[in-house]
Nucleic acid binder design. Structure first.
Length: 102
DNA sequence: AGTATGACATATA
DNA sequence: ATATATGCCATAC
C-alpha cells in the first residue's frame, strides 16, 4: 500500500493499516517497515504517525533522512512534524483548501 | 504462561 | 504542549 502513496503526500500507519484491511494494525505496518528496512524499495519516508510526527527521534539519522526525502517530495516538515491537513494522503479537504475549483 | 517492548492510535487530565 | 492510561497485535525473553 505504501507503494500507492502519491508523491508529495504522507500517510499515517493507521491509515495504511486500514487500507490494507488491517484495522488496529498500525504497529504491524511499522514492524513490517522495520523488517523491510534491510532491503527496502518502498517510499517509507512517506509514512508518518497519525499526528504528523515522524516516527523517529529528531536527532536520529533516520529522522533527518526522512525529513530530507519529504522536503525533496515538496512536503514541508515543520520542526518534527508534517502538516497532515496539507500533505495528508487521505485528506480530501485539500482540494477545497489548496485547489479550489473556483 | 506472564512480562516487556515496539517506525502506533485514541482518550483523558 | 506533555504525561498517563488503555487498546491493539506480534515478538522476544
Amino acid at each position: 500500500m505504501i507503494l500507492a502513496i502519491p508523491r508529495g503526500r504522507v500517510a499515517s500507519y493507521g491509515e495504511i493499516a486500514a487500507r490494507a484491511d488491517l484495522p488496529r494494525r498500525a504497529r504491524l505496518v511499522g514492524r513490517v517497515l522495520r523488517e523491510a528496512g534491510e532491503d527496502m524499495t518502498l517510499p517509507w519516508h512517506r509514512v508518518v504517525r497519525a499526528d504528523g510526527c515522524l516516527a523517529f527521534a529528531p536527532d536520529s539519522a533516520e529522522f533527518i533522512e526522512q525529513r530530507l526525502r519529504l522536503s525533496r517530495e515538496n512536503v514541508e516538515v515543520r520542526g518534527r512534524r508534517v502538516d497532515m491537513d496539507r500533505f495528508g494522503w487521505q485528506r480530501d479537504l485539500d482540494a477545497e483548501l489548496w485547489a479550489p475549483d473556483a
